[in-house]
Design a protein around this nucleic acid. Structure first.
Length: 209
DNA sequence: TGAATGATGCGCT
DNA sequence: GCGCATCATTCAT
């Protein structure tokens, strides 16, 4: 029963090892039926945060009111508030009782760009979703959408059989402990990633789009 | 082109 | 109080 029909990802997709889900979530589409209309985007960058042995994971020191959704069933949203002004969206993975999630760091806009621009004035299309804080701002996601069931009808992921040919890994961004783990996965061919340029060498690739 | 920093509020020791 | 899974702006080179 190979589910070769495009459609919403079911709980079984999320109910696996986080590092197994991470490369597969690239190229999937996130759909959000917001009050103002429907937004969608293609996922191009995620990071894994896994359990008690990961010092960078919010669940490393046990369950709290903030992180409790990570301890629950897979396939739910985990949205937290950071730096006094930004929200970050995660997808909960692994079986109930195992706290783990994938942080959505960047995506490419597909539809609903008018709404995104209203939420993030003055941004070019590729600058709307190229960062975890920017993604939530442009999508209009806040703590109000924390703990949503991704198998429901408001926020979900879709498989449209997009192939990601150039999957890359690196250390995670913006953390101190555990930065050596190569748990950031991204589409090396995307122009919508969260970090601009990292090459400290000379720019040889002068040509641009 | 890259490093440093200010904004701004919540969670946890 | 301090640190934080960020971002935009300012400053240095």
């Amino acid at each position: 029963m190979s589910p070769k029909k495009p459609g919403k990802l079911q709980r079984s997709f999320y109910n696996r090892s986080t590092l197994e889900v991470a490369p597969e979530i690239l190229g999937k589409y996130i759909v959000y039926h917001a009050p103002a209309g429907t937004l969608s985007a293609k996922i191009v960058e995620v990071e894994a945060y896994i359990g008690r042995n990961d010092p960078a994971c919010h669940a490393a020191n046990g369950k709290t009111e903030r992180n409790e959704v990570m301890f629950g069933l897979p396939g739910f949203t985990y949205i937290y508030f950071i730096y006094g002004m930004y929200y970050c969206l995660n997808f909960v993975t692994e079986p109930e009782g195992t706290p783990a999630a994938l942080l959505l760091r960047a995506a490419e806009p597909v539809s609903g760009m008018e709404i995104m621009r209203k939420n993030s004035p003055g941004k070019n299309p590729l600058d709307l979703l190229n960062g975890p804080g920017k993604f939530c701002r442009s999508f209009g996601l806040t703590r109000n959408q924390n703990g949503y069931d991704l198998t429901g009808d408001v926020i979900y992921l879709e498989d449209r059989f997009t192939t990601v040919a150039n999957i890359q890994r690196s250390g995670r961004i913006g953390i101190k402990n555990g930065a050596d783990r190569l748990w950031r996965y991204y589409d090396g061919d995307s122009r919508g990633l969260s970090i601009r340029r990292k090459v400290t060498r000379k720019r040889r690739d002068k040509q641009d789009a």
